[in-house]
Design a protein around this nucleic acid. Sequence first.
DNA 1: TTCCGGCGGC
DNA 2: GCCGCCGGAA
Length: 305
Amino acid sequence: MTDHLPDDRDAVREALIAWYEADHREFPWRRTDDAYRILVSEVMSQQTQLSRVEEAYADFLDRWPAVSDLASAERGEVVSFWSGHSLGYNNRAKYLHEAATQVVEEYDGEFPTDPDELQELMGVGPYTANAVASFAFDNGDAVVDTNVKRVLHRAFGVPDDDAAFAEAASALMPAGESRVWNNAIMELGGVACGQSPRCDEAGCPWRRWCRAYETGDFTAPDVPEQPSFEGSRRQFRGKVVRALGNHDELTLDELGPRIRVDYSPDGDGEGSRTWLRGLVDDLADDGLVEVAADDGGATRIRLRA
DNA sequence: TTCCGGCGGC
DNA sequence: GCCGCCGGAA
């Protein structure tokens, strides 16, 4: 059932890891292998944008630097810290405190290293257990979250099915390298292959294998079929210019999917070829782009020199 | 009785 | 993403 993956899996693996190691966002929790710290970051990340998490994470660890500190805190203190930092869902603070107590009382202060045991901790389900095992102990399996699903679906056509995603993700991960691998593939989903893809801008390492990059079909499980009022015309004009900056020349139908994920040549409404043509014509009138040859969908557009 | 999948609340 | 609850299956 791993027939979606390319033949040369090692090349795919190496390309991603090299891309990640060359450059990636530096989060404080990526610079530690302390299971307690990893757990705190994971619990916080499940509900808040990463930018807000950074501050709360630092303050939290400042106040309770080790799992034993958290375990001996009053539950009320932890909960009020949580709301004080607008982290929402106060139950999570309760669970985190309870998990710390479990580690101290049932595991003698040492986090278990296996995902199955980690799952015994309050508030820790399959996802979080695997994340902690990976990032703290390099002892996990492939993470499957919405980022990973989106990437696998687009790049290799893995069907929108939980079992298929789990199997493909696991088959692709280099054995015993869950720490770097999970960081890398989630970085890919966050930086290059988000809901609106940035393949060229982010230098996606998988372009040569990527089915979506080839076909222009960037649909994904978490991408709404018809995005609500997402972009202004002005925003789309910017995207056209940026896309043309990365390719000498594009046809309307090659350009479309790079501008908006719901592009479809048909019809004449928002996101249609007609709509895109109007956008391009305006840019041409402004002297920003030029129409190299006019041939319907194969109309070729380039940046004006 | 226990286990599992689905669903809603947090 | 996790928990808790529910109904149906074993």
